[in-house]
Amino acid sequence: METLIEVLIVEDDLRIADIHRRFTEKIEGFTVIGTATTGEQAKEWIETIQPQLILLDVYLPDIKGIELVTYIREHYQFIDIIMITAASEVEVIQHALRGGVSDYIVKPLTFERFKRSLEQYRNKFHQLSKNKKLTAEEVDLLWHGTKSEDSQGTLSPKGIDQLTLDKILNTLSKVDAEGITAEQLSKVSGVSRSTARRYLEFLSLENKVQADLIYGNVGRPERRYSIKK
């Protein structure tokens, strides 16, 4: 069993911090070890626990979150940071990038966006924990979420995430000969209907799934998808 990733939430609004905690607890592989509402509290938690991941807001009552990024990088280089904030100023984003922030989520956030960020982080965390050396393809997947042009011919289009794609393919692999609609795929896989439809269209273009129109007794025909044999 893989070790749980310990998460510290740094957010001065307790209501929002509780949302982040509940979101985190819904995602496999993570455990929330505490919540800090100020920069000083965050430093105390970091010194005592040294979590693997910090969910960090920019606006704190005593210091700015970007100052905490600098502090963490100076003293705890192996702690990772995902920023969740309403701040969209260029200088803040530049500071986050230069500070090695793993992801930058602009509020208001959705669970789907939050989940995608943590699942991508979890994938990177465990891959780096298990391997001493990575292939060029694995490095590209870690950095960009896509394979290099040399390894797959073309880069994955914008909006196609490898983890979500794998989930969709895994769901489709269990579908019987009748196939599945985008709406049904949405319910089974836990993604939105528009996301399910986008991934199905992508897989159709990649010639990995086939789409058939099924005419029922009542109403419009349904487009059903199944893995190509």
Rank of each mutant, 00 (worst) to 15 (best):
T3N: 11
T3L: 13
E6F: 00
I9A: 01
I9Y: 00
V10H: 01
D13A: 08
L14M: 13
I16R: 03
I16V: 14
D18T: 12
R22I: 12
T24S: 11
T24K: 02
K26Q: 15
G29A: 05
G29N: 03
T31M: 08
G34H: 01
G34W: 02
A36H: 02
E40C: 07
I49E: 15
I49R: 15
I54N: 00
I54L: 05
I54P: 04
I54D: 02
D57T: 06
D57Q: 05
L60M: 09
E67Q: 09
I72S: 03
E74D: 14
Y76I: 07
F78M: 15
D80C: 00
D80Y: 02
I84M: 03
A86T: 07
E89R: 11
V90D: 10
E91I: 13
Q94W: 09
Q94P: 04
H95G: 09
L97I: 11
R98I: 07
G100H: 06
V101A: 02
K107A: 07
K107N: 11
L109P: 02
L109W: 06
E112G: 11
E112V: 08
R113A: 06
F114G: 03
R116C: 13
R116H: 15
Q127H: 14
K132N: 13
K133T: 14
L134F: 11
V139Q: 12
V139E: 11
D140I: 13
D140S: 15
L141S: 03
H144S: 15
H144R: 14
G145V: 04
G145C: 07
T146E: 09
K147R: 14
S148V: 00
S151P: 03
S151C: 08
G153Y: 07
T154V: 13
L155G: 03
L155W: 09
S156H: 09
S156P: 08
K158P: 03
G159C: 05
I160N: 03
L163I: 13
T164R: 04
L165Y: 05
K167H: 12
K167G: 03
I168E: 01
I168P: 00
L172I: 12
L172Q: 04
D176H: 12
D176M: 10
E183Y: 12
E183P: 05
Q184N: 13
S186H: 03
V188S: 09
S189N: 08
V191T: 09
S192R: 04
S192I: 05
R193H: 12
S194M: 12
S194Q: 15
R198I: 09
F202V: 01
L203N: 01
L205S: 13
E206G: 06
K208W: 07
V209R: 00
L213D: 14
R220K: 11
E222M: 11
R223E: 08
R224Y: 07
R224V: 06
I227S: 02
K229C: 14
